[in-house]
Nucleic acid binder design. Sequence first.
RNA 1: UGGGGCGUAGCCAAGGGGUAAGGCACGGGGUUUUGGUCCCCGGAUUCGGAGGUUCGAAUCCUCCCGCCCCAGCCA
Length: 566
Amino acid sequence: MSSTGSPSSSNFIKNIIDEDIKNNKNNGRVHTRFPPEPNGYLHIGHAKSICLNFGLAEDYNGLCNLRFDDTNPTREEVEYVESIKNDIRWLGFDWDDRLYYASDYFDTLFEYAVRLIKKGKAYVCDLSAQEIRETRGTLTKPGTNSPYHNRSIEENLDLFKRMRAGEFEDGHRVLRAKIDMSAGNLNMRDPVMYRILMTSHHRTGDKWCIYPTYDFTHGQSDSIEGITHSICTLEFEDHRPLYDWYLNEIDIQRSRQIEFAQLNLNYTVLSKRKLRELVEEEYVNGWNDPRLPTLSGLRRRGFTPASIRKFLDLIGIAKRDSIVDIALLEHCLREELNLSALRYMAVLRPLKVVITNYPEDSVEEMEAVNNPEDPSAGMRHIPFSKVIYIEREDFMEDPPKKFYRLAPGREVRLRYAYFIKCEKVIKDKKTGEPIELHCTYDPASRGGNSPDGRKVKSTLHWVSAAHSIEAEVRLYSHLFTKENPSDVEEGEDWKSNINPDSLEVLTSCRLEPNLKDVKPGFHCQFERQGYFTVDSIDSTDRKPVFNRTVTLRDAWVRIQKRAGGK
RNA sequence: UGGGGCGUAGCCAAGGGGUAAGGCACGGGGUUUUGGUCCCCGGAUUCGGAGGUUCGAAUCCUCCCGCCCCAGCCA
């Protein structure tokens, strides 16, 4: 049982850990780590790794470190460090005092490198990047040894120290491991351990001008921290022999690298490169745009940490490349919010309705249930009067077969109020669009039931015109029109699949007055429509802005789609 | 013509010799003052394919097919 949810289902990593514990490997200890590179914002794919690593630690009574993998100062910044920490906490995890940086280990790593040189297992290579590439061979052809492959240990030591001292320019020399230029695994063809980067680092400043590569850093950092299970994604699978080689040759405690498949979701993109492109080229409004699968975007959109955790738990952990249906994420959110969200009435596209037989100046307070799933949420009052607004799409002048809502001559229920019957439609002279309805109400149906047992086919939400408050509501839908954004015509690019209608802004919405003093972070349901949250950036006291997190499941929409599809 | 992985329903996924869990999606029905929720019911004669071992195979063996990753001084 974990502190962040129910016990999760079995997976191959747990099987491995169970086996390790049975064999008393690491004395039964489980210690993981989440190792982000601080070069971008976290997205839900990272959340999968976070939940896995922190979750395993919880499940096995172990620990999980947060370690920034900051070995490349040319692309990493403190700004990202802060957002990453914030997002992890928001997701519900805590690294206590175990916040580390790979750069904390630069001194040790340097000593390890010296150790390998002394063992004759590493050498300074003067080849250019271009030349290294050319001598590496190809997938099917072995590489050739560098002309510097057999430099003496003394010369290597001297050169490496001079690299550190800043005697050479960027890219002029590297330190390489001496392994096997004919290995089938390219990673073993004398990989680079250190490169010269005349760049100051966000943590170590100008102390270093040589920086270790990922491969020469990650395993050793795991070892230094006593990590028992080093979990990463599939593309590192063929780095594992190198990971093991370094630990073995340096002769330090070994941790075990285990790889799992990254999360992919349909109708969106989950690569830092593509997300960055969307942000920088302003297809969206920043990293926290509610349409983005970044944690900051999902948070602003209204997703809850628990729903994201639940989702990630349900999809499981495996080694198979897969694309998960984003409908499952939405389901997890609805499942949670259905139980907890207070219900309100909000009219997004108002259509004026005059109740002709209702007294002119009368106002009644109608009693409404706050959450039918939770009686303890109590009741509230909603003012009702002669002029109200209903949803534009709840009226059709010439309704199709399965349309149950309001139409000329038809009677419906106004939720928590009265039965009303449409007597007259007033239309815009130019467009022919209905702009106002005249209805009559049945005074005996107060509260929503008629004493004569008369049935009505639908219940509409409404708002009193004079008492409602104005708001802006932003409706979001998938950022891409295709399940797989990369599915493009010859010569086109994935961005041509961006959905031009992913954001619809409604500026004249009318809300029931109970929603007046609502603050950012507030989640609620607008009845019959969906779950909404108050936008944390653009809301003002004068005019709140609501983001639609997700729609309610909608049978009517499905009926229409089916009819339209034929 | 190299190396490393992966194939169980439309999408995820458990199961690793004893006769195919679960969730989402989808469809049907019931309840309902949200076309919401909730409750029933419906799916794999079969686990990429073909052989083989076995009383018995998704699980073991052989061969074949398909898909993904690797030629950064990125992580």
